[in-house]
Nucleic acid binder design. Structure first.
Lengths: 339, 339
DNA sequence: TTGAAAGCGCTACCAG
DNA sequence: CTGGTAGCGCTTTCAA
């Protein structure tokens, strides 16, 4: 419900104030107002500094909001930002969507999300977006590192396509990657286990960066970690290894995933090496229920919401001709009962 | 990368085929093509059936996709669909987003998501969207039943605003509500517990519909359920109640939420009433890790993805002048170790 | 430094 | 039933 304004000059019939309305109010032409209000003016878009300030003021008062559709229609494309995410219905993806949506909403950018898990899906998505000449793309191609995909990405970026990649192994010029610092996450797990006085160390499951960070932190302390698979067999072996733990010198276990961590708990349940005392356990992801398990799970939280925000901000800047560098985001440890 | 076409008549310079391209190819005027391709033609938009089929064919071959921004710009609004969801970073919300995004993407509708938990946020969202004259809104106002919100909703719908509400207590003419059948969910929990031979029954936590369904299924079987709060005190009382269970005649517990279910597990841990034998436990929501706890949790799955799909489809139909009824979606039981 | 005018892709109105 | 034309809100030549 729009508040009725005392001054009715240049107020729109319905909806929000547009360029035309601001122009009417200021008495300037639409062109000038457009240029003054454009945060990313093109070369020949010169406006007197004084005029710009004035227009900016009036526009602010009138609650001007640029119509992105019209902006990009004129520019020969579609305002919509394409988002490609893995189809995992968990808090990680939800957080990512929160972050992206938050800044896109603030900037009045619409989006279109596509969910899929595989490289093939990502390629389809790119083709689709190329044709639509979307203003830009944020994508989380699930750690894809595939030459065909790489070609497709390059193709997309050759024209006006702008792209930000999330947590991927792909490295391309002019395509900034926003990623989680997985090695740091692994280090954090090791450091917590070290600090809590563990005598022996295990890592369960495969995840390059996390494992690497874990081992290197251990090495820094003159210790060594043992590797176990996440399959039933590996877990069985881990369970028997854990019998060597005591309250004094617990065994420290790092599961590269919360899911794996819960499987470790299960493998250990019923035995006499209890998680939280004889065995200290750290997971990774901070999924929904990790705070409610018994014992509650110490885990590495990944700030996906922040990652989403950064990606969206970078993309918008890119679209308007800016330049962006890759960035690494630090996870943080959430200490609970299990370690 | 668009495939090069043998026939180059009416192929667009770049991007996808538009109305103009189809017109060029068929030799018809843009107006006719527009009407032929419009699935929701206005009153006076009459086209020869023969023409329509032909155009439809050609358009299909050319890979025509309507530019929604332009369509709605002309219609005096913005194509973007506003989506308002609770800011809960869990699989429920993720699933909802999946479902909505899936159909919107297929229909080339862009969207804008806003996350908030409270009625106040929803009102801000509506105001914002009213001004933007969004083509429509899907909202999950977190079970709100607030006269102020109701007024705002009515106001929004008075004009061209179209809206679909999710899981809300609000009931308004012309605003279809897509909701989960919570009573049925409660019934399912009771029936599972009955079937597994429980002798006594408890429900933990407050949630009207779910409780009601639970009790009524129990009543149908000539049984009665005891209510417990979800706070520490209530859980303590529940734990002592559960000591009455045996393998033969277990106590059946229905937690109205998975989180509560895990708290029940914790309250019972260490005692001699074990979940899965002396105590049978059913949760609600089927969150991320419920399949991995020990014992794994039997729970009621809510098909939020399907709910999202339905809501989006209904909204689109509404936008084009269709009529839609409210609908109730059935949850389903996921049987695991705890019951 | 400013303004007028063309045009992005589409629909709606009005003539034929 | 079909075609021409105006115009949605904006950017971008091009002239003044």
């Amino acid at each position: 419900m729009r508040k009725t304004n005392v001054c009715s000059v240049g107020m729109p019939a319905r909806g929000i104030a547009g360029l035309k309305d601001v122009a009417a109010r200021t008495g300037l032409s639409v062109s000038v107002v457009s240029r003054a209000l454009n945060p990313h003016p093109d070369k020949n878009a010169r406006v007197a500094e004084e005029t710009r300030k004035w227009v900016l003021n009036v526009a602010g008062e009138m609650g001007f909001r640029r119509n992105r559709s019209a902006e990009f229609m004129k520019r020969g494309g579609v305002a919509t930002i394409g988002v490609f995410l893995p189809a995992s219905p968990n808090r990680l993806v939800a957080d990512l969507v929160f972050g992206i949506a938050e800044v896109l909403e603030a900037e009045d950018f619409p989006m279109q999300i596509s969910f899929d898990n595989f490289a093939e899906g990502f390629r389809r998505f790119l083709e689709h977006n190329m044709d639509l000449s979307h203003s830009g793309v944020i994508s989380y191609p699930s750690l894809v590192d595939d030459p065909k995909v790489e070609a497709e990405v390059k193709d997309y970026c050759r024209g006006k396509g702008r792209m930000v990649l999330l947590n991927t192994a792909l490295r391309l010029d002019d395509v900034p990657v926003v990623a989680m610092d997985e090695e740091l996450g692994g280090r954090m797990a090791a450091e917590q286990l070290l600090e809590r006085g563990c005598g022996q160390f295990c890592v369960v499951g495969k995840c390059m960066g996390r494992q690497k960070g874990f081992h290197s932190a251990l090495a820094d302390a003159g210790r060594k970690g043992n590797e176990f698979n996440g399959d039933p067999d590996g877990l069985k072996r881990l369970a028997s290894f854990c019998r060597g733990g005591s309250e004094d010198r617990p065994v420290g276990v790092f599961a590269v995933t919360d899911i794996l961590a819960l499987r470790v708990m299960r493998a250990l349940s019923g035995g006499d090496a209890r998680v939280g005392t004889e065995v200290l356990l750290v997971g990774y992801d901070d999924l929904d229920l990790t705070g409610e398990t018994t014992p509650s799970l110490t885990t590495i939280h990944q700030p996906f919401r922040e990652e989403g925000r950064m990606a969206a901000r970078k993309l918008i800047n890119l679209i308007y001709g800016g330049k962006e560098d890759p960035v690494l985001i630090s996870p943080r440890l959430v200490a609970r009962e299990s370690a």
